[in-house]
Write a protein that binds this DNA or RNA. Structure first.
Length: 470
RNA sequence: GCCCGGGUGACAGAGCGGCUAAUGUGACCGACUGCAGAUCGGUUUUAAGGGGGUUCGACUCCCUCCCCGGGCACCA
C-alpha cells in the first residue's frame, strides 16, 4: 500500500510517488525570526515534522529543508523600532525558535538555510527572469510581471481578473501592474543591502525559497509545505518564478497545506495580538501535552484553541502516558511467568494497533485516527494489567507506544530511564512501605508529600507502590 | 465582490453510498482503596445547518440558500 497525500495543486488524494525513487526532497516555509514563535507556528511545523518522520518510518530517505528568512520587511521594521541590528534579531529569535520547537520534539529538519547565504542564487534567478522577459527593472526594483505567466493562480484557484490587488496593502507605484510582485527591492537608507546589477538592494519575499530549493534539490522536487495562508500569493509566486525560469512543470509535485490555529473564531497571529507564545505555553504545560494537542488533529484541519480543548488534551495525553508508565511498572514489578489468553489478546491488539496506525497514516497522515487506536489499546492494556501479563507481552505492548511515539513525537520523556533516580526511589519506597506495615501513616504520608513537592507522585496500587514524575 | 475550506452529541473532532455514526474530554453511578492517586466498568444527549435532487438506500455524491473561517499581493 502506498502512502496517499492530499495535493493542494490537484485537490485530490494522490498516491505518493517521489520523483527520484526512494529519495524525498521536502521544503517547508520556516518562521521569520523577528519575534517569539507562537502556538500557530508550532501547529504548522509540528505537522510537517510528523510528515517527515512518517515518511522516514516508511523507508523514504527524506531531505527536509526549512528556510530562515534573515532579511525582510518585518525584520527591518522590528530593527528600527528596537534599535537591535537585523542580524542580532535573527540570532536571538532563531535560537529561541530552535529551543522551543526542540522542546516539542521538532527535530526532523536537515538543513536551515538562510536567505543571505544564497544571494548568488537569488541574483542569478532574478537575472534569468529578466532575460526571459518575465521580469522588469524599475528604479532599482525588479518585479515579476504576473500577466506574462498564464498559469498564475493554479495552486490557489484564483482568477487574476477577479482579484483585488491592494485590498490590504498599498500598491507600489513602481509596478507596471498592481498584481506584479517584487523580486528585488531597491535599497532604502539604513537598511541592509547587497550589490546587484540594478544597484544596491535586497531580495523580495518569494525568491529565497526558489533560490534555495534549486540549489539543494534542482529544478523540480517532491513536497512543499506551508500553512494555507501562504498559498496565495507566496506559493503562487514561487511556482511562477520557478516554472517561468526553467520551463519545467510541476515545480513541486505535491503541495501540502496545514490548517490554521484559531482563537475565538479568528486566526492566531501577531497582528491580531491574540497569540499564545510557545515560551509561555511551555511554562504552563508539559511539552508532551502541547505536542499531543497539535498532533491530535488532522494537519489540514484548522483547530480552535480554547482553554477547554487544551485541558482535554492534557487529560487524554496523561491517560496514554499513564498506560506507558503502567507497562513500565509491570515489567519491573509484576510480570507473570505463565502465558494466558490475555497475553494472546494483548499481543494481537498491539499488532492491530500498529497496522491501523500505518493504515491511517498512509491516508494523508491522519494522526487523529491513528491516535484513537492508541486509546483503545490503552484501555485493553489497563484492563489486562489488573490480572497480569507476561514480560514478553508487556514489552511488545510497550514497543507500540515507542514506535508510534517516535513518529508522532510523543512519550519521549517517559520512555527514557535514569538508573540513579530509579535506585534512589526504590530505596525511598521501601522505607515508606516499612512505615506503612507498621501503620505509621504519619511517616508514610510525609514521604509521599515531600516527594509530591518535588514533582514525584507516589501511588499505592494493588501490585504495590509505584512512582512517576508529574 | 471573487477564490478556497468547513457546519456531526454538553464540548472537541474522525470516518464511511448501507453496519451500533469512531475516539477523546466532561458529567453521573459503581468497583478498587488507610488516605490520596490512577485504572476499569456502566450510564449519559431523538448527535449530521435549511431546502431540493441523484439512488433501492445519502451524514457521505450533486445543486441551492444560510452561517462560520481562511486568502485577495504583510504573515506558519
Amino acid at each position: 500500500m502506498a502512502v496517499k497525500v492530499y495535493n493542494t495543486l490537484t485537490r485530490k488524494l494522490e498516491d505518493f510517488e517521489p520523483i527520484h525513487g526512494n529519495r524525498v526532497n521536502m521544503f517547508v516555509c520556516g518562521v521569520t525570526p523577528y519575534d517569539h514563535t507562537h502556538l500557530g507556528h508550532a501547529k504548522t511545523l509540528i505537522g510537517f515534522d510528523v510528515i517527515a518522520k512518517y515518511l522516514r518510518y516508511r523507508g523514504y530517505s527524506v531531505l527536509y529543508i526549512q528556510n530562515v528568512t534573515d532579511v525582510d520587511d518585518n525584520l527591518i521594521n522590528r530593527s528600527k523600532q528596537s534599535g537591535v541590528p537585523v542580524p542580532d534579531l535573527v540570532e536571538k529569535f532563531f535560537a529561541l525558535q530552535l529551543e522551543e520547537m526542540g522542546a516539542l520534539n521538532m527535530d526532523s529538519v536537515n538543513i536551515y538555510p538562510r536567505a543571505t547565504e544564497h544571494m548568488k542564487e537569488i541574483l542569478d534567478q532574478v537575472k534569468g527572469l529578466i532575460e526571459k522577459g518575465y521580469a522588469y527593472e524599475s528604479n532599482g526594483n525588479v518585479y515579476f510581471e504576473v500577466g506574462k505567466f498564464p498559469d498564475f493562480g493554479k495552486l490557489s484557484k484564483q482568477v487574476l481578473d477577479k482579484l483585488q490587488a491592494g485590498a490590504r496593502v498599498e500598491v507600489d507605484e513602481n509596478k507596471r501592474n498592481p498584481e506584479d510582485f517584487a523580486l528585488w527591492k531597491a535599497e532604502k537608507p539604513g537598511e541592509p543591502s547587497w550589490d546587484s546589477p540594478w544597484g544596491r538592494g535586497r531580495p523580495g519575499w518569494h525568491i529565497e525559497d526558489t533560490a534555495m530549493t534549486m540549489a539543494y534539490f534542482g529544478e523540480q522536487y517532491d513536497i512543499h509545505g506551508g500553512a494555507t495562508e501562504l498559498m496565495f500569493p507566496h506559493h503562487e509566486a514561487e511556482i511562477a518564478q520557478a516554472e517561468a525560469l526553467t520551463g519545467k512543470e510541476p515545480f513541486v509535485k505535491y503541495w501540502l497545506h496545514t490548517g490554521v490555529l484559531n482563537v475565538d473564531g479568528e486566526k492566531m497571529s501577531k497582528s491580531l495580538k491574540n497569540f499564545w507564545r510557545l515560551q509561555d505555553a511551555l511554562e504552563e504545560y508539559d511539552p508532551g501535552v502541547i505536542r499531543f494537542y497539535l498532533v491530535n488533529a488532522h494537519y489540514r484541519s484548522p483547530i480552535e484553541l480554547t482553554e477547554e480543548s487544551f485541558e482535554e488534551s492534557k487529560q487524554g495525553y496523561e491517560r496514554l502516558v499513564e498506560t506507558v508508565q503502567n507497562l513500565q511498572f509491570a515489567i519491573k514489578a509484576q510480570a507473570r511467568d505463565d502465558r494466558t489468553e490475555r497475553d494472546d489478546e494483548i499481543e494481537k491488539s498491539a499488532r492491530e494497533t500498529i497496522q491501523k496506525f500505518e493504515e491511517w497514516m498512509d491516508n494523508d497522515f491522519n494522526t487523529r485516527e491513528a491516535i484513537s487506536h492508541l486509546f483503545m489499546l490503552s484501555t485493553k492494556i489497563n484492563t489486562a494489567l489488573k490480572k497480569g501479563l507476561t514480560k514478553e507481552t508487556l514489552e511488545k505492548a510497550l514497543s507500540v507506544y515507542d514506535t508510534i511515539g517516535d513518529v508522532l513525537g510523543l512519550f519521549r520523556k517517559e520512555l527514557e530511564q535514569d538508573m540513579v533516580v530509579d535506585g534512589l526511589m526504590e530505596f525511598l519506597v521501601e522505607m515508606r512501605e516499612k512505615a506503612r506495615e507498621e501503620k505509621n501513616f504519619e511517616v508514610s504520608d510525609e514521604i509521599r508529600d515531600r516527594l509530591a513537592k518535588i514533582g514525584i507522585l507516589l501511588e499505592d496500587t494493588q501490585d504495590g507502590p509505584r512512582w512517576k514524575r508529574r
